[in-house]
Amino acid sequence: MKAVMYACPQSLDEAVGLFAQRGPRARPFAGGTDLIVQIREGKKEPDLVVDLKRIPELNELSFQPQRGLVIGAAVPCSQIYEHGKIAGLYPGLIDAVSLIGGIQIQNRATLGGNLCNASPAADGVPPLIVHRAACRIRGPRGERTLPVEKVCAGPGQTALEDDEILVSFHLPAPPERSGARYLRFIPRNEMDIAVAGAASYLELEKDRQTIRGARIALAAVAPTPLLVEEAGGCLAGERAGEELFARAAAICREAARPISDMRGAAWQRRHLVEVLVKRTLQGALQRARGGGASPQGRPGGVNDGPQGRPGGVKEQDS
């Protein structure tokens, strides 16, 4: 493993100062689940790693009805699903943070790292997109805010400059009668990277039938996580139902631009997207109506995505 220097700034200003000095030769370091492996394998060659875990702003995790949810970029996944309030309010997000890696990864890995590592298959990003997360970004030239979908620029690439840091995610408080769901397909039960993934968010009118608004985002079927605005748009104002959901799923299938690789063929990914969008819309609908399908965050929840293993046992938590 390449020799590196290590710094552990205690404040945002200190961290910004470090990145301003060293630019691309410094790498932000939070959970380390990607970065340490990348340095060891020579894929990244920083000469300074900047540990962000002692900076208060990056460790914030709080919900207030007016302000919504703030998730510091260095908060590990397990802290998010163990937080009492978040599970009920942002179930789509909890779906994702409780299936990233195994327990040991969830105790370290962060949503900030998931976004900034910029894998097209990042599980955490589509739910952030459908929950309308905004990213607070800080650099030597000041602060700016970007919607999360604008941060992903390509595989391994973000819209952040080399001297900028992702500070936190800000998710608006979910309106009444809203719900979200994230599902992915992997050929194993655990510890794998999505062949395809989909997050759906639905907001219902008072009749609990008519859709007021919808957002759908996809994982692993384009160079970046993909917000399919057209699919969400086609649902607005319509009555929820299987036929309607199938229409949205077909739009997503067309919007997907997958490649064939070791994890799956392009045609398979297109097919998966269609299936996953239908299922996540059903799940989001159920949650928006306030029934069942509670997120599986707590230890005991098993990844209940569609299991591809022939004869594989599908486990479902209560």
Partner: peptide, 17 residues
């Protein structure tokens, strides 16, 4: 690393390599 008094915010110390 012990979090002791580190007053100069502009240039936090680095350790290593």
């Amino acid at each position: 690393l012990g979090g002791s008094a580190f007053a100069a915010p502009q240039a936090p110390a680095r350790i290593g390599p």
